[in-house]
Amino acid sequence: MHPFSLFRLWLVQIRYALTRELAFRANFFAWVIVELSWFVLQLAFVGVVYHHVDRIAGWSRHEMIVLVSTNQLIQQIFTAFLMPGLTKLPELVRTGKLDFVLLKPVPPQFLVSTAQLEIGPLANAGIATLVTGMGLHALGIVPTFASLVAYLLLLFTGLLVHYALLLFLVSLTFWIVQAESVLLGYYSIFQVARLPREAAFGWFRVIFTFALPLLLVANIPAATLIRGMEPGPMALFLLTSLFATLFASLFFHQGLRRYQSASS
């Protein structure tokens, strides 16, 4: 299928999902508050730890705020556009409703990933952007145009890592009947992304840099804003995230072969 057709289809899906979301406005505001409370929790943790120390692995309090809020920004964009669809996959497989997806003349991975949208997280992405800006202001940093463009590209690369991890986890549903705990797994594993890269060591650092580059997801974009562009780590981030996405996609298709329709 032509990429432009997929893009048009995605826009249609967004319009449909937006209409559905706006029908439940109270729910929208409730989720904005929920997500905000989790972000406040992370910032409170930073506040408590820096109440006792000045620097952690070379990161000052405001640098850590930029790191945490960058991570939040990527996570919220992911939660808005891709996560709602992916988390529905276990239910689709269990109930056999994946049949309706497979019958459509569109790549199933695309349909599964983009079928849903939540607009609440976008409001929180705005708040995360604001906190990032405040962190930079406190550090006395005014990012250049080039570093801002690089930051945006790196955010997109970070989205790929989120996508790869969750796609891999939800694809386990083809082997395990009830795989609701994979969402817990996603949130548990993604705590790694909030760590300063320099804090990690040994096999932990190797695995979460090269195999599943979670240590790069927020670190590289945040470091780009704070310390400027570093081509080496940026290239590593791009390569590892592309590889992770490819691997997850292959795993999804491998799982799809095991799918047994519930209706036939």
């Binding site: 395990i176 009947v177 009830q178 797994g185 548990s188 705590q191």
Partner: peptide
Amino acid sequence: RWNYLLRALFSAMPLLV
């Protein structure tokens, strides 16, 4: 059972972090 085992395995992740 598998759902449970996965849940238990993932719950150890915050300790590692």
